[in-house]
């Protein structure tokens, strides 16, 4: 099972995206959401990202991270660099909502790998709305 981590500048946005993504598959143990700076304001916290990653890695074989923008990307990259072992964690270069939906759907496949889930998430870059 591949886990998903949604990182947004807003904790509420991250939780909401997670809620939408869980409609496609996954559960509380395999999809996590973090957002907000260390004081709870708009921003991201590397400690929260690290804590969420280590919880997910206990329940899954690897994690695909979906990020909104700016510091969310950099803090996720730094958190991944600081992992101790050879855990498989990658960031998907994808829009966070559509990417999370695609990733959640593809992560339900028994053959899913971190790479396959990342690819599905990144296919969301081409989704056209009109």
């Amino acid at each position: 099972m591949i886990g998903l981590l949604i990182v947004s500048h807003s904790g509420q946005a991250a939780a909401g995206i997670r809620e939408i993504a869980m409609e496609m598959g996954g559960d509380e143990e395999t999809i996590a959401a973090v957002g907000g700076d260390p004081d709870g304001g708009i921003g991201t916290s590397i400690d929260d990202i690290q804590a969420a990653l280590s919880d997910l890695l206990e329940a899954t074989d690897g994690v695909v991270v979906l990020v909104d923008l700016g510091s969310a990307v950099m803090n996720a990259e730094t958190a991944i660099e600081m992992l101790e072992g050879d855990e498989e964690v990658v960031i998907a270069d994808a829009p966070v909502v559509e990417g999370a939906l695609n990733a959640a759907a593809s992560a339900t496949s028994p053959k899913a790998t971190v790479e396959s889930v990342r690819e599905s998430a990144e296919e969301a870059r081409d989704i056209s709305k009109l």
Binding site: D37, P38, G43, S45, I46, G70, S71, M74, N75
Partner: peptide, 15 residues
């Protein structure tokens, strides 16, 4: 700084 800054300046300056 990485842990506490919260914005992009955390990973940039701290990292």
């Amino acid at each position: 700084l990485v842990s506490e800054v919260g914005g992009a300046a955390g990973p940039l300056y701290g990292g």
